[in-house]
Design a protein around this nucleic acid. Structure first.
Length: 427
RNA sequence: GUGGAUGUAGUGUAGUGGUUAACACGUCUGGUUGUGGCCCAGAAGAUCGAGGGUUCGAGUCCCUCCAUCCACCCCA
């Protein structure tokens, strides 16, 4: 019986870690520059949190949740997304008593029972950012700038930013009604997929891939025309702010796409996505929007919020596709090559080396040639060679593995060894 | 959940019904006594994704399952 990992999960092996470290470093550092703070919430939550927050009618809740009853009989769900949990934490911990708005970032596994594909997993990792407690469009602009800056700091290019507004809940109902009515006129011409969807979520028809629907969609009512006075002001202001931002950042571009829809119920007003040009269908690298009704829906005080989630795995796929140069994995600094069963005489030295910041390992107990090969194969920078001869003399041989024939005998004294390494500038 | 493609050592591949499944990279061991990278030699490593079936005989054909990939759906 062989075990294999569950479908749609992945092992992130040491060779891949430089990508993960790179992406997460850029993500965190960028968010910190924008004044965001790290937050962590549990991997699983009360199932109702997601039903209530994400929306009973959404695909995510209806057919993609990892839900189960725990031994106490409570229904538990592995989080399918991050925002609901963060908002729950905001409410539960009384974060409204902290300076507003609160700005959080997190990196966490998300779980959705989906049919796996490249860039779509059952467990994937999201770096997410949220601004909670201020409804002004300046923060819409800020979160978009943060997303953009993050992607830019990663060294990615040719990423499109798409932007839309869904209006607020009142005008949205009106809009949805008119949108449904519009498509209903053509119900007999719609492909079955879309006539089905029309009942569930009419917004979806706007970004349908069916040719007929696409044609019909060009004449469909636009959400921008249904904005309330406030939402219109909000939207216009956001556009103005982004245009201003673009004046100082030449490579910042956005495109208003009134077919852009997002799948979670809590979104209102601003929604946006960053999508690599000529990407496949699993292309969205970062997506988010405003969710003003959410906290109240979860039983908290009426509190606006806006945020985004970005898929780490998708970022890495794109980094590889664009051949962005990533720093290599950290390698070992010093390998101790030892003969004659005297390794225990070197533990003091090994300890000193580590305490002074050098990653140090001893070679496996094999022939010297094999130990040297080992040092080479793990890309170590320095070999320190000690056998019975050196022990009796109280010395070591130290060798710079990047240069041929650079071996030097030193006395077995960590200070002398550090001095030599520093002077020779080997590391 | 729907449709399609694929599945051979750790990785990448060859093998297109017939003896002990091949090659490259990687790993390990050697190339005389304690010195890596190049080179040379050798070894280990695959019940050919799993289980059934057809056949005298299957990695090769058929079925089921599993997994990966692609499209849909959905989303990060």
């Amino acid at each position: 019986m062989k075990f294999i990992r569950p479908r749609g999960t992945s092992d992130i092996l040491p060779d891949e870690q430089n990508y993960w470290n790179y992406v997460l470093d850029k993500a965190k550092n960028t968010a910190i520059k924008f004044g965001f703070q790290s937050i962590e919430t549990p991997t699983f939550e009360d199932t109702n949190l997601f039903k209530r927050g994400v929306g009973e009618g959404t695909d995510v809740v209806m057919k993609e949740m990892y839900s189960f009853d725990d031994l106490g009989g409570d229904s538990i769900t592995l989080r399918p997304e991050g925002t609901a949990s963060v908002c729950r934490a905001y409410i539960e911990n009384g974060m409204k008593n902290q300076p507003q708005p609160q700005k959080y970032f997190y990196n966490a596994s998300m779980f959705r029972y989906e049919r796996p594909q490249a860039g779509r997993l059952r467990e994937h990792h999201q770096f997410g950012c949220e601004i909670i407690g201020d409804e002004n469009p300046e923060y819409d602009a800020e979160i978009i700038q943060l997303g953009w800056k993050y992607i830019k700091n990663l060294g990615l290019s040719n990423i499109e930013l798409k932007l839309n507004t869904l209006g607020d809940s009142k005008t949205r109902k009106l809009y949805l009604r008119d949108l449904s009515n519009y498509y209903n006129q053509f119900i007999h011409r719609l492909p079955k997929i879309d006539s089905d969807r029309l009942l569930r979520s009419p917004l979806r028809l706007l970004d349908s891939k069916e040719i007929i629907t696409k044609e019909l969609s060009s004449g469909a009512p636009k959400s921008v025309d249904y904005l309330s006075e406030e939402s219109k002001t909000h939207w216009d202001r956001l556009i103005y702010l982004l245009d201003k931002f673009a004046e100082n950042n030449e490579d910042f571009h956005y495109e208003v796409d009134n077919r852009l829809v997002r799948g979670l119920d809590y979104y209102n007003r601003t929604v946006f996505e960053f999508i690599p040009q000529n990407s496949s269908t699993q292309g969205t690298i970062l997506g988010g929007g405003r969710y003003d009704p959410l906290i109240e829906m979860l039983g908290g005080p009426s509190t606006p919020g806006i945020g985004f989630g970005s898929g780490i795995e998708r970022m890495i796929i794109e980094l590889k596709k664009q051949k962005v140069k990533i720093p290599a994995n950290q390698t070992v600094d010093v390998v101790i090559i030892h003969m004659g069963g005297i390794i225990e005489d070197l533990w003091g030295l090994i300890s000193d080396l580590r305490d002074n910041g050098l990653s140090t390992v001893f070679a496996p107990n094999r022939s010297m040639k094999s130990q040297m090969r080992y040092a080479n194969n793990i890309n170590a920078k320095i070999a320190i060679i000690v056998g019975p001869d050196e022990i009796s003399k109280g010395s070591v041989n130290i060798k710079d593995l990047s240069a041929a024939g650079s071996q030097k005998e030193l006395i077995l004294d960590s200070k002398v060894i550090f001095k030599y390494i520093r002077e020779k500038n080997i590391l």
